[in-house]
């Protein structure tokens, strides 16, 4: 009987005691989470109405931001996106409070590390987003400029500008996250130098004549062989 007491009943009683201690915290956490979900939904509705009343979607249309978001796969209006973000943050804050209420040390430690790391993730995401926008803008500018200059490989120029900026922003984001920062920078340097060297060799060996003609025109002001248009546009 004593054997059974030690083997089953005592552990079960301890479990019951712990459960009785844990359950109120768990229920409180559940209530907090539910309140968070409710508040998140309410806040989302309120923020949507507020931004729509302010006319932020129209502003986005006019400034070309909607189109930019659409091109990156986001088809929802900005008012809804911001509302979702506000609602999401509210739910996340309440979820954190709920988890802390449960008072499980292992979960608390994990949570603490996660939240300490979270700002880095945000900054990295911002770097990627800005890099994406910048790559779109500058690659388009480079493409149009090279088409207007009559460069036959204009598409390549545009893509080159886009990928260089994307790779740079990706490298910066990874560095910020602390993921193999040195390796990434070294790899980037090697790849970038390789590309530049390849271009230099291609231009130097393949385009010697073009380079010579170009330099002659620029430095000596040599006459252009090609028949020049004499149109007056204005």
């Amino acid at each position: 009987m004593e054997f059974l007491q030690r083997l089953f009943i005592d552990p079960f009683n301890r479990f019951l005691d712990n459960l009785l201690l844990f359950l109120p915290n768990f229920l409180t956490a559940l209530v907090i989470l539910l309140v968070g979900l409710l508040l998140g939904a309410l806040l989302k509705m309120a923020v949507v109405r507020l931004f729509r009343a302010v006319g932020i979607d129209g502003l986005c249309e006019r400034t070309g931001m909607s189109q930019m978001l659409c091109k990156s796969g986001i088809r929802e209006p900005l008012s809804l996106l911001l509302a979702k973000l506000a609602g999401g943050i509210t739910v996340a804050v309440f979820a954190v409070i709920a988890v802390q209420t449960i008072s499980v040390p292992a979960v608390e430690r994990l949570l603490e590390r996660f939240f300490l790391y979270l700002p880095n993730v945000f900054v990295a995401l911002i770097i990627l987003f800005v890099g994406y926008l910048l790559s779109n803008f500058l690659s388009r500018a480079a493409l149009i400029a090279s088409v207007n200059a009559g460069v036959r490989l204009s598409g390549l120029v545009g893509r080159f500008v886009r990928y260089v900026i994307l790779i740079m922003s990706f490298t910066m984001a990874l560095e910020h996250l602390g993921i193999g920062s040195e390796t990434v920078i070294i790899a980037f340097t090697i790849v970038f130098s390789g590309v530049v060297l390849a271009f230099a060799l291609a231009f130097g060996l393949g385009g010697r004549d073009v380079a010579r003609d170009y330099l002659e025109r620029k430095l000596k002001g040599a006459e252009r062989e090609e028949e020049e248009d004499k149109l007056t546009h204005l």
Binding site: L143, V147, G150, R152, S154, G155, G158, E226, E227, E228, D229, K230, L231, T232
Partner: peptide, 18 residues
Amino acid sequence: VSVNLERMMERFSLGVQE
């Protein structure tokens, strides 16, 4: 007025292409 039509056409085609 001299006009290089061939080059103009090339510029147009390049624009359409890119």
